[in-house]
Amino acid sequence: MLRPALIAFLLATPAAADEIWVTNEKDDTISVIDIDTLEVTRTIPTGQRPRGITFSKDFSKLYVCASDSNAVEVIDPESGRVLHDLPSGEDPEQFALHPDDRHLYIANEDDAITTVVDTETRRVVAQIGVGVEPEGMAVSPDGRIAITTSETTNMAHWIDTETHELFANTLVDSRPRHAEFVRDGTELWVSAEIGGTITVFDVATQAEKGKIRFAIRGVHDDLIQPVGFRLSADGKTAFVALGPANHVAVVDTESYEVEEYILVGRRVWHLEFNGDKSLLFTTNGVSGDVTVIDVARREALKTIKVGRFPWGAAYRPTGS
């Protein structure tokens, strides 16, 4: 824990470099990593059990799912202070910010509901019934489709963002965790933790068009549990966090074949790039640290100690 005087000093110092913000699920804090020095420069208290984390488009506001406080907290990134809470429904786990920069789509894990919140009026706009244990959330780049994945129902639920109604429900493998639109929104990728796969959907037809599978020598298949993933700047390569397999897979997004595996910390869940996507930061829950990967060389550079159970990560440019 930082002493108050030290916090005051750090807060008074203008941020020197771009940052990666990491939620620590079992510490109720955010660790802020300076991308130049690769060190933690600030530790910011949050509500209980912080998980999903994302910035507004202009990076003036930070949204954090404080799951056990049943709220989304809006934090001023400069001061680290909580500005106010947003109504989020019970047990918010993950969310996605609509391209309009205004509406948050929130998965309420305990309630089988997706909540849509207007961050300006701070009101709930809609609640949509989905499968058991919703978790992954994504909004298409054109803003017309929102996706919720449900962990026990094993589906991706396709939500029309205009009517807030489901227009398709597609089965995926066991325990879907994370969803993302890729290739300018023409493909939807959904990772399945227990199934050990990523299912690729054609967005226009909602039909399955591919499946990514993983195999690491010396690691039992059951332990290969894909969760978070990110695509490189040119969109040709995907990096997939494989949970208790303690590796990040490097996947060719054309052939869906795995090119290699990078050893990182224990139980790796989510990933975030720096601004030019030359560095990749992974949250390693069990070892309580963040691995920094050199994207071009596909090598782990450094391990940075953060709080207990790091969960999500978000990039913040500081303009310097």
Binding site: G129, G131, V132, T153, N154, M155, H157, N169
Partner: peptide, 10 residues
Amino acid sequence: ADNRTTGRFL
């Protein structure tokens, strides 16, 4: 209850 929630969509 878990089955019914899933079944609802199918």
